[in-house]
């Protein structure tokens, strides 16, 4: 249930985010937080489907047909290998949902920032196919990654505190 609410909230947030562009370069990408947060023990097919639908929803509202859907699907494919790169024993986690709470700040930051950088790289390179402005593309990837990582860390603390209060 929480995932469904998060899905709609994040799509809405992303629509607002695409309107924002800091210094002409940085576009905040927050909706991939849902893909990062999907419980790691869920079947890959479920994660793939949710990621694809998430990307498609953003594509339709932001006029980028297929772009985010493709990047989201690929991100869901990379998710488990990257996760196991930083977290060796998933049995140690008390909850299967990756967050600062369950992994600790260090591991979560490494996992999350790797995923964000991969996503930004795929997104901006696919967007700039056929254009000859590599420096701009690289600057966009860098600036958007930093901004998105900061926003997702804030988002994670927001979602986690809310759950603590409910408990």
């Amino acid at each position: 249930m929480q995932i469904i609410i998060l899905f709609f909230v994040l799509v809405l947030a992303q629509i607002v985010c695409y309107k924002i562009m800091l210094f002409g370069l940085a576009v905040p990408i927050v909706f991939i937080y849902l893909i990062l947060r999907l419980p790691i023990n869920w079947h890959l097919n479920v994660a793939l489907t949710i990621a694809f639908l998430m990307g498609l929803a953003v594509d339709i509202t932001c006029n980028t047909p297929g772009l985010n859907a493709l990047c989201c699907t690929l991100l869901a494919v990379f998710r488990y290998p990257i996760f196991s790169l930083y977290v060796s024993r998933e049995d140690d986690m008390n909850v299967p949902t990756p967050s600062v709470e369950s992994l600790g700040l260090g591991s979560y930051f490494r996992y999350m920032s790797t995923m964000v950088v991969i996503y930004a790289t795929m997104l901006f390179f696919l967007q700039s196919i056929g254009m000859h402005n590599l420096p701009v593309t690289l600057a966009r990837i860098g600036a958007s990654s930093v901004l998105s990582i900061a926003l997702i860390l804030g988002l994670d603390s927001l979602v986690s505190t809310r759950r603590e209060k409910r408990l």
């Binding site: 079947h43 890959l44 097919n45 793939l48 489907t49 694809f52 990307g55 594509d59 047909p65 297929g66 772009l67 859907a69 493709l70 699907t73 690929l74 869901a76 494919v77 696919l126």
Partner: peptide, 19 residues
Amino acid sequence: AWVVATIYVVLSLLMLIKD
């Protein structure tokens, strides 16, 4: 999982190419 991933990737690529 590979089959599902391939289907989604192909669908996205079709949308992207027909942009």
